[in-house]
Amino acid sequence: MKKKTTYIWMGSIVALSIVLFAVIYFFHLQDDAIKVADNLKTGGQPTLSYYIQGDLNDPLEKPMDVTKVGEFVYVTDTNHKQVQVFDRSGTPVFKFGKEGTDKGQFEFPYGIAGDKDGNIYVADLYNANISIFNEKGKFIKYFEVADKADQLKGPGGLRIYNNQLYVTDIPNNRVVVFDLKGKKMLEITSVTGKEDLLNAPNAVTIDDDKNIYVSDTGKQRLVVYDKTGKYKRTINGSADNKGSSKFVNPRGIGVASNGTLLMVDNMTHYVYGFDKDGKQIFQFGGIGSDKNQFYLPNGLFVDDKGEVLITDTVNARVGFYY
């Protein structure tokens, strides 16, 4: 009897602990989301926590893009033709890939994204393919398009949302949406028609309303479409978004949970924030290697909690903002 009571007590304590942990964890997550979102919402820039610079013996060189899967940060270490993986503290965990054209090898690893199963998709601009790795960096297969006519010529930016792969095909001046089996769901090549085509789009992202944001690098602008690919608006940094563009080489983009749009402007070395209407609400950066400065920043990723990662190519680091 005494033994049975002990079991009941122990079970109760464990159950209570689990419930308590869940409650605390839930509120912790909420707190994170509120903290970052509020920061962005009030016109403030994301708060820099630290920089990831890579393995001491193998520091990053031209990190082009970054994503976050679970608590791990995946960075395309482009000049080293590999992907480096870090834990939440910025500690290198492992890396995968090497120079070449075979399976698991890269010539220009660029866009990177994770699916709900933890698989990692890596776009290779020069090898003209997208490789799929498991969360440990083991090559699984190439992403194959169902119809050869949809073959990618130079994949750049990647995003995965609702089991759909969004990819910018840079040399083909288009953005393509596939399901994860390779069937083309949508293709965007222009803004309003043949007279206004995309040019070298480098990045794509999606908000919670399924609007599609394209960093149209060659035309120095961001273009926003609805989920069907219908044009909604252009953002180019000018007062009414109709004047001369303020951007020079716009690259990585991401949308925070509160709708704030963040964009990296590569050759002005700035990061801009916009509200849902495309009005600029903050900017930070500028050329340099000090805290919050950049030398040719490129990739940007915002997760569900509003944590922001930005690759800083010449400074060879990734800024982690949370």
Binding site: F108, I170, T217, G218, N249, I287, G288, Y295, L296, V314
Partner: peptide, 19 residues
């Protein structure tokens, strides 16, 4: 110029990312 200015700046566009 900034450190590695010329090479890095040129290769920001002439690495295939801009067409």
């Amino acid at each position: 110029l900034f450190k590695d200015g010329v090479y890095s700046t040129c290769s920001a566009c002439h690495d295939g990312t801009t067409g």
